[in-house]
Design a protein around this nucleic acid. Structure first.
Length: 230
DNA sequence: GCGACAG
DNA sequence: ATCTTGTCGC
């Protein structure tokens, strides 16, 4: 399979990457509610790394939002496009993620990715970045609160608490997806509302803490990395 | 000034 | 993200 290289104009240092974020962030659309939950298609994306070989594998798995059945899968393998810097995660993996999305034969519908959208130091995390570059509705789901804080939330599935920035803005939501488990952190990326995003994530977590979409994508990209590395 | 810090 | 054994629990 072809190796996805980073674009020729890809940022080479942190200062340039931050400048790119500050330019692209103006194109995020936040006033659309997005697709209603439990309808249409939902596509999970995830990546796996082999830092030794500088390789990243991305997977996109399309699910039927009602049955959660897999409708289509796609993978792409690329070169790691940027070092890991908190706040600049998107620059590592976006070219390869976009290649995986582009090789799908149908519209991905709503995209769910690991990490953050608006819950980001400059309000432009991976989910927002991916949304602006693809034009698709995207939401971000992370496993920890990063630099943000939230009040304690109830112990039951569906309980929520606002994820707050220093200035008091609600940049996302801590959402309990199963009774008694650690919450996940949901934030909108592009062309979706926070209420809708949380409803989608609840619909995608009938059994486990993490959405079915990311669990499927996680397994697939790990498999793709092993096959590409072998 | 020094850490901490999505994946 | 990734490196990794056993262990607790449904």
């Amino acid at each position: 399979m072809k190796i996805i290289e980073k674009p020729a104009d890809w940022p080479a240092d942190e200062a340039t990457a931050i400048a790119v974020q500050d330019e692209l962030r103006t194109r995020v659309v936040l006033d659309e509610p997005g697709p209603p939950p439990s309808s249409g298609l939902v596509t999970g994306v995830d990546v796996a790394y082999d830092d030794e070989r500088d390789v990243v594998a991305a997977a996109a798995v399309v699910l039927d939002a009602v049955t959660l059945d897999v409708v289509e899968e796609a993978t792409a393998v690329g070169r790691v496009a940027f070092p890991y810097v908190p706040g600049l995660l998107a620059f590592r993996e976006i070219p390869t993620v976009m290649a995986a999305l582009a090789s799908l034969t149908r519209d991905p519908g709503l995209v769910v990715c690991d990490g953050y959208g608006r819950a980001h130091p400059r309000r432009f995390g991976l989910a927002a970045h991916l949304g602006v570059l693809t034009g698709l509705p995207v939401i971000g789901v992370a496993k920890n609160p990063f630099v943000f804080t939230h009040a304690e939330l109830g112990p039951r599935r569906g309980d929520v608490a606002a994820l707050l920035a220093d200035d008091g803005e609600e940049v996302g939501r801590a959402l309990r997806t199963q009774d008694g488990v650690k919450p996940v952190y949901v934030s909108v990326g592009h062309r979706t509302g926070l209420d809708n995003a949380c409803a989608h994530i609840l619909a995608l977590t009938p059994r486990y803490r993490l959405p079915e979409s990311t669990r499927r994508a996680d397994r697939l990209c790990r498999r793709a990395l092993i096959e590409a590395t072998a």
